[in-house]
Design a binder for these strands. Sequence first.
DNA 1: GTCTATAATTAGATAGAC
DNA 2: GTCTATCTAATTATAGAC
Lengths: 195, 195
Amino acid sequence: MARKTGSHSEVTGPKVRQAASTLFARHGYAAVSMRQIAAEVGVQAGALYLYTPDKQTLLFDLMRQHMQDLLGAWQDCAKGTSAIEQLEAFVRFHIGFHLERPDAVFIAYMELRNLTAENFAVIEKLRKQYEDALENILRNGLAEGEFSIPDTKLAMMALIAMLTGVNTWFREGGRLSRRKVEEIYCDMARKAVVG
Amino acid sequence: MARKTGSHSEVTGPKVRQAASTLFARHGYAAVSMRQIAAEVGVQAGALYLYTPDKQTLLFDLMRQHMQDLLGAWQDCAKGTSAIEQLEAFVRFHIGFHLERPDAVFIAYMELRNLTAENFAVIEKLRKQYEDALENILRNGLAEGEFSIPDTKLAMMALIAMLTGVNTWFREGGRLSRRKVEEIYCDMARKAVVG
DNA sequence: GTCTATAATTAGATAGAC
DNA sequence: GTCTATCTAATTATAGAC
C-alpha cells in the first residue's frame, strides 16, 4: 500500500508511548516536558498532539495498558490446584512479569498521585482486581487449612510489597539469576503463610 | 529577649520544612512550586530563600534529616540478645517509626530521582547503613543456626519492602490496630526466615 | 504527518523597599 | 524578616504553513 513520504503514523504512535514510558520512569511525570518526549521520538513538540490529546492522557494510557496487560497475563498464567501451588505460580508470575517491564511498573507505582481523580479511580479498580487474585488464593489456602494467616488482606499486601520490591534491586547478570530469585522468594512467601 | 515585630525566623524555618514535606508528599517534588510552599507557610515566595538556598536543598535537607532520625532512633531502640529477638525488635521498630511520619517516608522513597548526583550519594549511604543493620541481624541468626535463608541481602530486601509496604495501606482507626499489625508482621517475618 | 511560530501561563530565583 | 516587583527561562497547547 502506497504511503506518502513523511507519513509515519503507525510507527510514531508507539514511539511516543515508548519515549514517554522511559522518560517518566527515569525523571518522573511532572519533571518531563513534552519537548523532551518529542526530542526522544525525533519530532517537534507539536507533533505529539497527533497521538495524545494531552500529557495527562499519555500517562493514563500507559498506566491503564500496563494494568490490563498484568491482569490479562495472570489470567493466562494462573494454574495449580492446591492453594500452595497457586501461590507459587503467583509468586513466579509476579516477579517475572514485573522484571520484564521495570519502567511501566515504576510508573504504575510512582505516578498515581499525578492522575486526575477520574483516571485514578480507573487505575485503582484495576489494581484492586489484581490484589483480589492473590487474596482469593490466600482465602482458598485458609479454607483448605493449609495456610495460617490471621488476616488475608494484610498477608496479601505484605506479599505483594515483598515481591514488587525485587524490581528495586534486581539487576540482570548480577550475583543471582532471575530463576534463583524466584525460587528464594517462593520459599519465603510459602513459609510466611503456611501454618 | 526583645524581638522586632514581624521577626519570625525561629518559627518560619520549621514551618517551611513542614509545608514542603506535606506538599512534596502529596503532589511530588517536581509538581510543587515555591509559591505553593510559600502560600502554605503564609509568606511570599521570595521569603522562602531566607531559609533555603534553593528548592533542591530543601528536598535534600528533608531527606537527610529523615534518614538521620531513622538511624538515630534505631540505635536507641535496638535490643534483644538472640537474632530472633533482634529481628522482632527491628520489625516493630520499623513499622512504628515509619507509620509515625508517612510524609517523610513517602518522600524518602519517591523523590530519590529528583536529587542531584551528589545529594543522592549522601542519602544512599545513609540508607545502606540502615539496611546493614537488618542484614547483620540476619547474618547473626544464620551463624546461630536459627535462620534458614539462602542469601542475607535478598532476605533483607524482601523484609524491608514488606515492612515499608504497611505505610501504603494502614489507616489509624481501621480494622486492625497498629499493635496488631506489628504482631502479624512479626510472625510473618519470623516464619519467612526461620528454618 | 510534521514543522514553525506563538499564545498564555508559570516556574525558580533575585533586587531593593520597608 | 518580609513584601513587591521583576528577570529569565521554560511550560502546555494551538494555529496555520507545507
